[in-house]
């Protein structure tokens, strides 16, 4: 009885080794084992990002803001025409962030990080990650954001600000672009 049981067990184990019983994930793992998780803080990035600076309408900012920006001085001249009338900051409560949280008032051609370091408009993720570290981690691996046109290496990803308006980052409510087409009886 016991011998029979072990014989059956042995046969079952041999059976499991065949391709037929392998799940899809087992097949994939066998063909190409997972790589070590990319270290998000190592500074080594295995993809490039879309440029952003060339798409900014008013860049270079120093064309107007020749010697930086003085908020208190500007606040004293409210009647002056405001160039950035369309910018409405709906990102975080006012006690959490102001324009200066991201923009470098000393040199408006750059953004600034939490530690005051200047960052190019082409690399906004360096600024965004100060708060959105989880999203940055996902984006670095590929679970957040968008691939650019191709699934093959060399990999190119969308920038944070390609999709998100940094002044109003949430996606807005709108109508769907197509009508549904679902037969009545089908789910």
């Amino acid at each position: 009885m016991t011998i029979q049981f072990f014989a059956i067990l042995l046969l079952a184990c041999i059976g499991c080794g065949s391709e037929h019983h392998m799940s899809l994930m087992e097949k994939i793992e066998r063909a190409a084992p997972a790589a070590a998780a990319p270290a998000t803080d190592s500074g080594v990035r295995l993809f490039s990002v879309l440029s952003r600076q060339d798409k900014l309408a008013h860049f270079p900012c120093r064309g107007c803001h020749t010697d930086g920006f003085n908020l208190s001085a500007a606040a004293k001249r409210p009647q002056e025409r405001r160039s950035h009338w369309d910018v409405e900051l709906r990102h975080a409560p006012a006690d959490v962030m102001t324009c200066a949280t991201c923009h470098d008032y000393r040199d408006l051609n750059h953004l600034n990080k939490n530690n005051g370091e200047a960052v190019s408009f082409d690399e906004p993720s360096a600024v965004c990650r100060s708060c959105h570290f989880q999203q940055f981690k996902d984006w670095s691996g590929g679970a957040h954001g968008k691939q650019f046109k191709s699934w093959t290496p060399p990999r190119v990803r969308y920038n944070c600000t390609t999709c998100h308006n940094p002044h109003r980052p949430a996606f807005q409510k709108r109508w769907p672009v197509t009508y549904p087409s679902v037969p009545r009886r089908y789910p």
Binding site: M25, I28, A31, A32, P33, A34, A35, A37, P38, L46, G141, G142, A143, H144, G145, K146, Q147, K149, W151, T152, P153, R155, Y158, C163, F171
Partner: peptide, 26 residues
């Protein structure tokens, strides 16, 4: 390519460095 929110990721399951493999692993 059309998805405006980045909800869709496509890739090669046999490439350990692909986005899709990162999602499956993490």
């Amino acid at each position: 390519e059309a998805c405006p929110t980045g909800a869709r990721t496509f890739g090669n399951l046999l490439d350990p460095g692909s986005e899709i493999r990162y999602i499956l692993a993490h």
